[in-house]
Design a protein around this nucleic acid. Structure first.
Lengths: 195, 195
DNA sequence: GCGATGACAGATATTGAAATCTGTCATCGC
DNA sequence: GCGATGACAGATTTCAATATCTGTCATCGC
């Protein structure tokens, strides 16, 4: 009997470790199995394909960010402050992930490029959180009625801040002036939503 | 004596043609020279390297767009209308380039990735045009004083519309709902700038 | 004299044979 | 019986030999 039963979670943990160590190009299913001390056939008992395994890792990683932001979205202070906190939180989270361990971030960028479905769900989740803040702000009387509706306005806010959360722009998150640029866009958005 | 003298312009024309025909990966300096009926050594008499030649082609291509927009920026109607026309003009121009001939567009995307300096100048040019419109709008009393200043506000507008002009997003310019998304962002920006 | 040429060296890209990996499944041991 | 195994076929990647390309420059023809 192995030290622990083989579960999807343990496999995901091992896959993250292997991806961290070898990078997305070199990490193989055999490596993951070896890290777990099992045969690669056993991994396929829990995940139908290598792509599905990598997608699951990506999903877990993205979910870690959306959870923390979800708390801000579900809070109950003034919507304008929550919107600021939410947008800054998103930017800061991504910026730190990119800055702290660029190699690991590059790995996830590759994974993200592979699994568009997972990313779409993640974006839909985030935009949903924004929509909650916007509707809430309208109810509080702080924001004008969303144009043309809350989901579209939320998506507009998400789109307008693209440069500060889309990993494709990670390279300029460490350039001087990026904070000024971010604040200018936030100001534009706040004024654009205000009652 | 050749039918026409060998000029930088004729070389650029031939390079565009070769890029169109073979794509960025296969187009060689020898191909360009052959298209012109000269030896490749002669091409190097006018451009110091293949990279410089490709940059010049990219610059020409980008300048074609900024010229048309420059006319809108220099116009003298109400700033809000000019801003709308300018942003729509930029989006439409890119969208058509991407939609009409996807292969050629892909070619230019590769070239753009190679020559960051040229792109930076192009972006600076466009942001400068936006700054003119914004300052003008403020002078007309239509826009609030730019925050924190016109160049930064202009850059914020440019950043906020990233999804609608950065070639990296070309894939979603043909998805349904893109027009709604664009209009929502424009509305946010107009309200964000308004007096 | 002056721009054009093409042979050349070093850098880069292509190709195909060999090695590795993915995903399946008949078989094994508990 | 049930999950784990590892041999296997087909797909993919690697690697090194080969071919092509870039950029230079001594030489040519006008």
């Amino acid at each position: 009997m192995p030290p622990e039963a083989l579960t999807p979670d343990r496999i995901l943990e091992a896959t993250e470790e292997v991806l961290r160590r070898y990078g997305p190009a070199k990490a193989t299913v055999v490596d993951v199995a070896r890290a777990l001390g099992v045969s690669h056939g056993s991994v396929y008992r829990h995940f139908p394909s290598k792509a599905a395994l990598r997608e699951a890792v990506t999903e877990r990683w993205l979910d870690r960010t959306s959870e923390r932001l979800g708390e801000i979205a579900s809070g109950d202070g003034p919507a304008a402050l929550r919107l600021d906190a939410w947008l800054s939180g998103l930017f800061e989270a991504k910026r730190h992930k990119a800055g702290d361990d660029p190699e690991l971030f590059a790995t996830y960028m590759v994974l993200i490029g592979e699994s568009s479905g997972v990313v779409e769900r993640h974006v839909a989740d985030l935009v949903g959180q924004l929509a909650r803040i916007i509707e809430n702000g309208h109810a509080q009387g702080a924001f004008a009625p969303p144009v043309p509706d809350a989901p579209t306005a939320a998506r507009a806010v998400f789109d307008a801040t693209n440069r500060f959360h889309d990993p494709a722009y990670a390279a300029d998150w460490s350039t001087p002036g990026i904070t000024t640029a971010f604040e200018a866009v936030c100001h534009l958005i706040q004024k654009g939503l205000a009652a």
